[in-house]
Amino acid sequence: MASFAREVAYRIFARELSDTTVALERDPDDAYAPQYVLTPTGAKVNRVFVIGTLTEKEDIGTDTEYWRARISDPTGAFFMYAGQYQPDATRALTEASVPEFLAVVGKVSVYTTEDGRVMTSIRPETISVVDALVRDRWVLETSRQTLDRIKELEEGNCENLSMIEENYSMDLEQYRQMVASALESMQ
């Protein structure tokens, strides 16, 4: 039976999330099944917790506030959209300034643009301003958990192994390098 317990917030670097192109099919018999995306290192993700620097924010709404924001970590950038259905996140984005460290909890979705590019974005649930010390801990934790996933995947321990092989290059060395460069940025 599918689980309706609160979804864990995965720790994923921006580069890995922006490489993500696979949205898992929902159970067709279950209209309330959560949407998951499958990342190149094998994480099956509905929710993420990310910390990075707010590098852009823009209110693109017409009738109501609708914010588009970019949050950068040492490997790339997360894209997020927040509007009237995310009142806490919208208020936080209204108040936030560029650049500033933000901690974001949100849901991930994969979509295809008009010109055929597959993009990921985060719909934030909560956003808070944090300092460099908290950010450092996130980078270390995300490095740890990314390396753990790479190792599991290399050993073939992944429930969606065949789907990953079909959709991604399986060049896991690039993600090791990504982790290495993230860690080096902290030295």
Binding site: R70, S72, P99
Partner: peptide, 16 residues
């Protein structure tokens, strides 16, 4: 400021 203090990659800093 973005690349050093905030550890943002250069491409992201440029965009910002």
């Amino acid at each position: 400021d973005l690349t050093e203090r905030f550890k943002v990659p250069i491409a992201e800093a440029e965009r910002s």
